[in-house]
Amino acid sequence: MPLLKGGVVAVDRWQCAANGETLPADGPVIVPFVRWRAERETLIGRNAPVGVRLTNTDPVADLAPDLDRLELIVLEFPKFTDGRAYSQARLLRERYGYRGELRAAGNVLRDQLLFMQRCGFDAFELTQGQPVQAWVAATNEFTVFYQPAGDGRNSAMQLRRAAILAN
């Protein structure tokens, strides 16, 4: 599955280890949230990057104390119409200050990419076989945004205020 990151298709160096599967001897590994909770010490002791995959009902607040140990968090869109992970993403970025890679997985479609990016996602597991330019174009369809969100873009209100203060 191609991984879109920073506007290009990136190499995915991460391996997944589901519950019950043996952990790879080395290299970056993604584990489900429950496994992270159960085997936190082992995973930290492994001395290789750790990522956690959350379902969209897992409480992101529980990860808050460990965020600087994680290099990757994967959030899921089981259906593109299920928008719970948008809130998880904003909480991770804006409330808990997570700085690592935030990856969208599942039913990730071109027409939702901008919403995801705005909420703080910076990597996308692509499911549709479309040229990468189409995906990148989808995140550039707008230049005006009406809310402050997890991507740091200024809202129209912030820009208007800045213009008034500058005069």
Binding site: G83, Y86, F145
Partner: peptide, 13 residues
């Protein structure tokens, strides 16, 4: 109206 326009978090409630 402005705040809710294409709100990225609340477009798939």
């Amino acid at each position: 109206r402005q705040w809710s326009t294409l709100h990225p978090e609340f477009s798939f409630l």
